[in-house]
Write a protein that binds this DNA or RNA. Structure first.
Lengths: 338, 338
DNA sequence: TTGTACGCGTTATCAA
DNA sequence: TTGATAACGCGTACAA
């Protein structure tokens, strides 16, 4: 690092380091002329205040961390985009971590983040374990946090979620109205609260319409296509499904692939609806009926909430509010009745 | 930040701060017993060495920055994933910046990154301006950098790219072989080198097959769907195109939408091929013929190259190598001849 | 094997 | 309006 530091710049200008510092911080208490002089010389010599020194000095990093299960997912990249907008506007940087749905990594990240590196965390969890208490281990040291979408209900932080129950209810009801009798619910990690909530919407819709519900209709998948493919194919064949409600877009895609292979025609033989933030859902063959969450807005809001906490530390312990946003269901050909 | 620091931990154990420090750094020069004691107490009190203090002390941040034009793009999210793998393996963190194709932001990011915050930069450029010299302003202070995919040729850094010329040539030739006579080339920011390279492949393929090439067949688009839609529709109508070679997947999607609206049938009336990292290209209607870059591998390699430089500073000034990886063309229905 | 003391680059406080 | 100084938390040379 052959960068010039504040002392060298001070020498070059025959000024003290404090004056230099002032030129970069307060616009007060310094003559405009001096300030101009300093800034121009700084530009010339390419001086910039050292980030680590500043942060060490005033114990602020102006950085927040964003932890998501995966990056290659439209929903999360849009949410991150939303977070970034707000962070940038507040002069904050974001550090992005992707857990690949691995709890180990998640714990590791969070632990290491508690070293002063960031001022707060925005997270959508991997949700593998039942024991989330590692988050409480930090006690008073726990960083301000906001959870979104995939959340741990037993961890007290503000949470931004969508109306998953209602959306799932409507989605399922829609399939029923289109004539489906045997509707499968495809889910990844069904024990995570978000999966449960959606499952309840699904079950209640079946109930309302007096449709036979069986445990076997809930199909637990993973994030791996190669693992899911046989599972879905088996379900399609053995259970004679005529409708699929997918809780994640990845599973809808896998269903499409499976149907192609098995020569099952969507929507004629099988109707499909899915949670998805895919912008090209209308271009699929057939176009996919989707429940789309306001991902960017969720990101915006999560960040805003975090900054609220950051500005008023007292509130941390009380911040348990839950914000529920509405998803949008768009009907397309994959659920069209003949 | 109510975190405990090294001094407090030392007091709690009746040891000196240096011993504590040693327990976390060198495993040498410290009795195993003492070390165990320290680490267990540290865990209990939730002590972690302050990131900023450590970095300030030894002038290393163990962090690299990744700058990309956009996050909501399969290619870039996959590339980032690839970078992350390598970074993590080397014990480095990554800071992600998205420029939204805005040169201002790009310049801003890079300037602010030169404050010791990161040790190196991996970048795919926005490519708006002709003047990239802001990068050279840093002189000896310039951070180690690796460029990938969208690169500034006039900036000396290692570059990872794909065989864009060859792929474009083959793609165009494929359209010709499928019977296309009037092939349009859709590009964003045609002056960026990557666009130019692809254009050359396109033009040379036309030449080889003695197909009439006209400037008007090169259609300059933007990143905004609302802007592109009328441009593409106009081109489709006025130029009577029967083939489209899209340099970015976004433009292929826009072409699909436009064709739907204009009742142009793909591939019957119009054949489409595109650069794309979309994993569900086979699910489109019709399935899209794609040129797919090895995004994850590109990310891996970029990171590896950067770490090579980081480990041997001397090489920075010589590091001008250019690595060319091969893309893969997969033929699907969007270019099928009748 | 452990402890003492200094410096990394900055900024806030106080004095001039 | 400017300058001197101490302190942020850590790690290392050096001393013990």
């Amino acid at each position: 690092m052959d960068g010039i530091n504040i002392k060298q710049l001070a020498e070059a200008l025959n000024l003290s380091t404090s004056t230099i510092s002032r030129a970069f911080r307060n616009s007060s208490g310094i003559k405009q002329h001096t300030k101009d002089l300093i800034l121009s010389k700084a530009k010339e010599l390419n001086y910039q205040p050292n980030h680590y020194a500043s942060n060490l000095r005033d114990q602020k990093s102006k950085t927040i961390a964003v932890i998501v299960p995966e990056l290659a997912n439209n929903y999360f990249s849009q949410a991150i985009h939303g977070i970034e907008q707000v962070a940038r506007a507040n002069g904050y940087n974001i550090l992005i971590y992707s857990t690949d749905d691995d709890l180990e990594k998640e714990m590791d990240f969070i632990k290491h983040l508690h070293n002063g590196r960031v001022e707060g965390i925005i997270m959508s969890v991997s949700g593998e374990a039942e024991n989330h208490n590692y988050l409480n281990d930090f006690g008073a040291r726990r960083l301000p946090m906001v959870q979104f979408d995939r959340v741990y209900d037993d961890i007290d932080t503000p949470k931004i979620i969508t109306d998953d129950y209602e959306s799932s209810f409507i989605a399922t009801e829609h399939l029923i109205e289109q004539g489906c009798k045997r509707i499968g619910y495809l889910v990844v990690k069904k024990d995570l609260s978000i999966g449960k909530t959606r499952e309840m919407g699904y079950i209640d819709a079946l109930k309302k319409h007096h449709i036979n519900y069986k445990e076997e209709l809930i199909i637990d998948c993973s994030n791996s296509y190669t693992e899911n493919d046989p599972i879905i194919k088996k379900a399609l064949k053995d259970l004679k499904l005529d409708g699929i409600f997918a809780s994640v877009e990845r599973l809808a895609f896998a269903t499409y692939y499976a149907s192609y292979d098995l020569n099952i025609k969507i929507p004629h033989d099988l109707k499909v609806i899915s949670f998805s933030s895919l912008e090209i859902a209308p271009l699929l063959n057939p176009s996919l009926t989707t429940i789309t969450q306001p991902a960017v807005e969720i990101g915006n809001l999560s960040a805003k909430l975090l900054f609220d906490i950051l500005q008023d530390k007292k509130e941390i312990s009380f911040a348990k509010e839950k914000v529920v946003l509405n998803s949008k269901i768009i009907f397309r050909n994959s659920t069209k009745s003949a």
